[in-house]
Simulated assay, not measured.
Amino acid sequence: MPYVRHWLRNSILLFALAITLGMVAAHTHLIQPHDLRLDRTIQIHTRAEWLNHVMEGISYLASPVAGVIILAIWSGWLLFVRRRPTKAAATFLVVAVGWNSTQIAKAIVARPRPPREFMLDPEIGSNSFPSGHTAFTVAVVVAAYFLLRESRHRRTVLVCGVLAVLLVAFSRMYVGAHYPTDTFGSVLIAGSAITFVTGLWHVWLEPNLHRIPLMERFGLERERAELAAAQGDHAHGSVPRNRRRPGSPAASGGRHRRHAGR
């Protein structure tokens, strides 16, 4: 997981921006008419019987039930099959926190759903801002990029990920479950939560993974040794984390602790 400078400040600013957008959209007339007009334009000019099933299927793939299944399989594969407990924990946290952060925003903004008569499948939940489906997709894409950012597949993941987020966001407006600002707000909310997690990860979470017995059992030390060796190779002769000089910062995030309050 990369380290983001000024992670605390940036996460708070992103969250505040998203909440401000949601409050303006939900409780003023500056955005609401335009939101509803765009929703209706999409639904009137693009709906077709076959496309209804496609868009409902896409929405289901990012639904709470499917999301839990995807996250459990992905994290379990990294932990039990790949024996990468650090990557499994990081992936789980990025997706879970980025996704579920929307519940906080939903409770604060309390925006009603679009009119039910335009929905293909009426939603049970009452709060519209932000879109949990879109936030889940954003979190999955970011987690995948974090895993592959040092590989040759990073650009493919980035391009495909952006298209996936746009497709899920469109599907939520197509089926009538969300307004456009709901989907955009979910990107801000998920981004703020993930930024916060990256900082917390380096400051406290990752250095304390060894305290969990399950992590040691599935090869935590081996994974850390491989990571330290890889970092040493990339640094062209710099001191690896597991062979630091006396008096140098601690291997488990000393540099990050100095930036923790920034």
Rank of each mutant, 00 (worst) to 15 (best):
Q103T: 01
L220D: 09
A72R: 03
A177G: 08
S75N: 00
I69F: 14
F218V: 05
R154K: 15
P246V: 11
A225R: 12
A18D: 03
S252F: 12
A90L: 10
W201R: 07
T102M: 04
V162S: 05
H178T: 06
W99F: 10
I69Q: 07
S151G: 09
R244E: 09
R111D: 00
P207C: 11
E226F: 05
R40P: 00
A96K: 06
A228Q: 00
A190G: 10
R152V: 06
P249D: 03
R262K: 12
A25V: 04
F170R: 11
S101E: 00
L227E: 15
N127Y: 08
G261L: 14
T20N: 00
F92C: 09
S126P: 02
A18G: 11
T181N: 07
K106L: 02
R47V: 13
A90W: 14
F184M: 13
I194H: 08
Y145V: 07
I58N: 12
A251C: 05
D121A: 13
T28G: 09
R82E: 14
L14D: 02
A250L: 12
V203L: 06
V197W: 11
A251V: 06
V4T: 13
F15T: 07
G161C: 05
T134L: 02
F136E: 04
H29F: 07
A169N: 09
H153F: 11
D35Q: 04
Q43D: 08
R9S: 13
G254Q: 10
V81T: 13
S101V: 00
F136W: 12
H202M: 07
M173L: 15
I69G: 04
H256S: 09
R9P: 00
R245M: 14
G67P: 05
S151W: 08
A250M: 10
A107I: 05
V168P: 08
V109M: 01
R83F: 12
V94W: 01
V141I: 07
P249A: 03
M215E: 08
N10H: 14
T28H: 10
V65S: 10
R172Q: 15
R211G: 07
T195Q: 05
V68M: 11
D35V: 04
N100V: 00
I104H: 00
T134R: 05
R111P: 00
R82F: 01
V165N: 07
V141Q: 06
L200W: 09
H236T: 01
M23S: 02
L14T: 01
T181F: 12
S192T: 01
R84M: 15
